[in-house]
Design a protein around this nucleic acid. Structure first.
Lengths: 255, 255
DNA sequence: TAAATAGTGTCTCTCAGACAATATCTT
DNA sequence: AAGATATTGTCTGAGAGACACTATTTA
C-alpha cells in the first residue's frame, strides 16, 4: 500500500496528503546501486570504486547514486552504467533487490535499490572505464566481505547468483559478448559465471538445439589461437531469448 | 554506493554527512507492501483492502505501510501480515521487487518495496482476517488492473510469477498448507498457482522421488470426500527444501 | 453398483553427460 | 608432426509425460 492505510498514522484512515508530514517520518535516502559484471579471459569481473572517505575509507564499493526526482531506480542504474563506461545500449541492467537493513549505513537511513548489469566485452577486453580514476574492474573471485564497503559484498553475491540463474533459462549470457560470437566464447561465459567446467561437445549440441542462435556465415579464430576457426553466431532474436529446453546448472555446482 | 559518490552532490566527493542535507533531495516515502497469497479449494486468493479515500477511492489495494525507523522492509512486511491475519509464523514472506516509477503515486514520490507472502490454509479454509473491515480475500483470477489501485495489479502478477517459479525448485508450495497434508492437497496448490492441471499419478511419483516429504503414518480424507483416504506427509526439513530433480512448469503453460 | 480418489505400473521419448572420433588450424 | 580447438557422433541412464490398472472409499 502507499501510506494511506498506515498504522503509523494517528487516527482512522483519512486523506493522505492532509495527514502526511515528512517530519513525522524518519528521513530515508534512496539510492540505486549497480553491480556491473563483465567477463574477460574466462574470469568474472565487477566494476568497483575505491572509497576515499569515511565510512569504509579505502574499501571497495559498488557505483551508485541518488535517484533523481523524475527518475526510476532502473533509469538511475542505467545512467550510472553509462556514466562509468560510456557503453550505452551495450549494458543490460535489471533490478536485483532492495537492501533495507536499518544499520547498513552507519550515517543515516539509506535504502539501496540494487541492480545487476552486464557489460559487453569488445575485442575480448573489459570495457574502458570513464571515470575520475576511482573505478576499476576487479576479479570477483578475489573479493572478500572485508574488502568491500557496506553490504556490497552481499549485493555482489546476490548479483552473481541472479545472473547465473537467468542463464539457465535465457540467452542473457550473450550480453557479456559482442553482437556476434562463437559458441566457445559463450561457453566460457557460462563457465566463468557458474564457476564450473562444461563439456565443449555437449555444450555445443545443447545450445544449438535451442535454436536461439543463427549463423552469420563467418568464422573466427582468436589471435594466437589454435585449432580450427569457429563458426560465428548471433542471437536469433533479442539476445535474451528463452532457452528450451532449459540449461540447468550442473547438480554438483548447484549443491 | 551510498550517496558519497553521488553526481547529485555539488563539488568533488567529500564527507557524506557534512554535505548531505535532506532538504536538497526530493522527499521520498518508503513503504513495504505485501501480496499475501492463499489457496482455498484449488483457487488462488490475495488479501486486498478496499480503499476509502482518494486516490483510487473504491479500488482494491494491497496492504502496506511505512517502514519503521529501526525496521527493515522484510520486518515491516511480516508485521503487516501479522496485523492482518494474526497468523504469526504460519506466514512466509520474502521480498519481491521495488517499484520506483516516479508517477506511480499521484500525490508524492513513494517507493514501494513489495513483498510476497504465503498464508497457510487451516481446515481447508482461508485464514481469518483481523482488520477494521476493509480487508478481504479476493480471487486472483477475478482481479483486473482497473479494479486495483496504483500499480498493485502489476505487483500481484509479479508476486504470483515469483511463487510459481519458486515452486519449481523448492517445496515452498507446502507453505500454503497446514503442517501436515496429503499429496493431493499439495498438487492442488501447484495447479492453482501454475494455472494448469497436473496428472495425479505422475505428480505423486515425481514428488516422492525428491525425498522432501516424510510420512506421518496417518491417513486423511476430506469431509464428504470420495476415494481412498490419502497418506499424510510433512516436509522432511524446513518446508522450503530444494526439489531435486526440479519440477519445471509444463512447457505449454510456460510458453 | 457406480463414481471418485489414491497410488502403482508401464511404455515411450527426450535429454543430459561421458567420451570417442574426425576435421582444421597453429607452432 | 604435435598439439590444440571445433564439431559431430555414439552410447547410456535419468526422468517426464501419457495412460492403464488396482485398491479403497462414499453415495
Amino acid at each position: 500500500m502507499d501510506g494511506v492505510s498506515s498504522e503509523h498514522l494517528p487516527g482512522p484512515e483519512g486523506d493522505f496528503l492532509a495527514r502526511y508530514n515528512p517530519a513525522d517520518h524518519p528521513p530515508f535516502a534512496v539510492t540505486a546501486d549497480l553491480a556491473l559484471l563483465a567477463v574477460e579471459r574466462g574470469e568474472l569481473y565487477v566494476l568497483t570504486r575505491r572509497r576515499l572517505s569515511h565510512p569504509f575509507e579505502g574499501r571497495l564499493g559498488l557505483p551508485g547514486g541518488f535517484l533523481g526526482p523524475a527518475e526510476s531506480a532502473e533509469t538511475a542504474a542505467e545512467r550510472i552504467a553509462r556514466e562509468k563506461t560510456g557503453l550505452g545500449t551495450l549494458v543490460a541492467v535489471e533490478q536485483l533487490r532492495t537492501y533495507t537493513d536499518p544499520e547498513r549505513d552507519p550515517r543515516m537511513r539509506v535504502v539501496s535499490v540494487a541492480h545487476v548489469g552486464i557489460a559487453a566485452t569488445q575485442n575480448a577486453r573489459l570495457p574502458k572505464i570513464i571515470d575520475d580514476g576511482q573505478s576499476s574492474w576487479t576479479r570477483c573471485a578475489d573479493l572478500t566481505p572485508e574488502m568491500m564497503a557496506f553490504d556490497h559484498h552481499n549485493i555482489l553475491q546476490d548479483a552473481i547468483e541472479r545472473i547465473a540463474s537467468r542463464m539457465e533459462f535465457t540467452l542473457v549470457a550473450a550480453r557479456f559478448l559482442p553482437e556476434t560470437f562463437t559458441i566457445s566464447q559463450l561457453r566460457m561465459v557460462y563457465a566463468a559465471v557458474w564457476g564450473t567446467d562444461l563439456d565443449p561437445g555437449n555444450f555445443q549440441r545443447k545450445l544449438l538445439a535451442t535454436k536461439v542462435l543463427e549463423e552469420t556465415g563467418e568464422r573466427y579464430q582468436a589471435p594466437g589461437g589454435r585449432g580450427a576457426p569457429a563458426k560465428v553466431y548471433r542471437p536469433a532474436l533479442d539476445g535474451c531469448d528463452p532457452l528450451r529446453p532449459a540449461f540447468l546448472i550442473p547438480p554438483l555446482r548447484r549443491v
